[in-house]
C-alpha cells in the first residue's frame, strides 16, 4: 500500500542557470537542428528554457530530508527540456538521499504523472518513493501538431512510501473521456496542474477522500487516483512526517 507523506511544489521564474554555460548553446543548437530537420521544422534561437535536472534538484531539496533514504525516483515529463539528451534521472539519483533507482517516463502527456505513481505502487519493497512531475514552458520551435504548452516552468514532487498522511488507494490510466475529479487545477499547467493541486491538499488534515483526475486531450488518456486522507497523529519526533493510523 502506497502512502503520500509529503509534497513540494514550485514555479521556476528564471531560465535554467545551465543555459548560460558557454558549452550549452552550441550543443543544444546542434541537437535541435538535427532533431527538427527531418520534420521540416526550423529552430528558434536556443535561448531560455528550463532544465528538469535543476528543477527536480530544487524539489528534492525541498521534500526529502538527508536522513530519509529514497529507494525509487520516477520523473515524469511531456515537454522536452533544454538538455534533451541528458539522463536526468540518473543525475537525480546522485543528488537524492539514498541514491535511489531513478528513471523517467514520458511520451504519455498528462498520463505520465499517473503512470509514475502507478509504477511507484509496483515497487512494494520500496520504503520511500519519489514521484516528480515537471513541465517547462519554452519550446524552441513551432508546434508541429496541436498540443498543450505550459504557461510557466513548474514542478511537483510527491514523497510516497509505506507511511504518510494519505493513502493512494488506486491509480488508473486508461483510454477514455474526461473523468470526474475533486481538485481545481491551476490554468497554464497542463502536466503538473493536478499534482500541484494535490500537493496543496496536504495542508488540510481533515479526513476525506480526494479523487485526482486528469485527461490528455491529444492521446485520449483518462486518469484517476483515489487518495484517502486519514485521521492521523504526528509521529514521535513531531517533524512533519506523519504516520497513517486508519484501517488499511
Amino acid at each position: 500500500m502506497l502512502w503520500l507523506a509529503r509534497a513540494a511544489r514550485r514555479v521556476f521564474d528564471e531560465p535554467a542557470a545551465r543555459t548560460a554555460h558557454p558549452s550549452h548553446g552550441p550543443h543544444f543548437a546542434g541537437y535541435l537542428a538535427d532533431l527538427l530537420e527531418p520534420y521540416g521544422l526550423v529552430p528558434h534561437p536556443p535561448a531560455g528554457g528550463q532544465s528538469y535536472g535543476e528543477m527536480a534538484a530544487a524539489l528534492i531539496a525541498g521534500v526529502v530530508r538527508p536522513d530519509e533514504p529514497v529507494d525509487l525516483l520516477v520523473l515524469a515529463f511531456a515537454v522536452p527540456d533544454v538538455r534533451p539528451g541528458r539522463a536526468t534521472a540518473t543525475y537525480l539519483s546522485h543528488l537524492c538521499p539514498g541514491s535511489p533507482l531513478a528513471f523517467a517516463v514520458c511520451d504519455q502527456g498528462a498520463a505520465a504523472g499517473f503512470t509514475a505513481l502507478r509504477i511507484a505502487q509496483s515497487y512494494p519493497d520500496s520504503r520511500r518513493s519519489l514521484v516528480i512531475v515537471v513541465e517547462q514552458a519554452t519550446l524552441h520551435y513551432d508546434l508541429p501538431a496541436p498540443a498543450p504548452l505550459p504557461a510557466r516552468h513548474a514542478g511537483v514532487a510527491l514523497l510516497c512510501g509505506d507511511s504518510g498522511v494519505a493513502r493512494v488507494s488506486s491509480v488508473t490510466v486508461e483510454r477514455g473521456g474526461p473523468p470526474a475529479g475533486d481538485l481545481a487545477v491551476p490554468a497554464g499547467q497542463p502536466y503538473t496542474g493536478v499534482w500541484w493541486a494535490l500537493a496543496g491538499e496536504l495542508a488540510d488534515p481533515t479526513p476525506r477522500r480526494v479523487v485526482v483526475a486528469d485527461h490528455d486531450p491529444v492521446l485520449g488518456y483518462a486518469c484517476t487516483s483515489t487518495v484517502d486522507f486519514m485521521a492521523l497523529e504526528r509521529d514521535g519526533g513531531g517533524t512533519g512526517v506523519r504516520v497513517g493510523l486508519g484501517a488499511a
Binding site: 520523473l75 514520458c106 501538431a145 498540443a147 492521446l219
Partner: peptide, 29 residues
C-alpha cells in the same frame, strides 16, 4: 522527435493497440 509528435502512439494505433497504455521509459541510456 519534436514535441508533441509521438511515434509510439502512432505505432499503437496502426497495430490496433490503441487500448493499451503506452509510454516511454528512459534516462538509463
Amino acid at each position: 522527435v519534436p514535441y508533441p509528435l509521438n511515434p509510439l502512439e502512432t505505432m499503437c494505433r496502426l497495430l490496433g493497440l490503441d487500448k493499451a497504455v503506452a509510454f516511454t521509459v528512459t534516462h538509463h541510456a
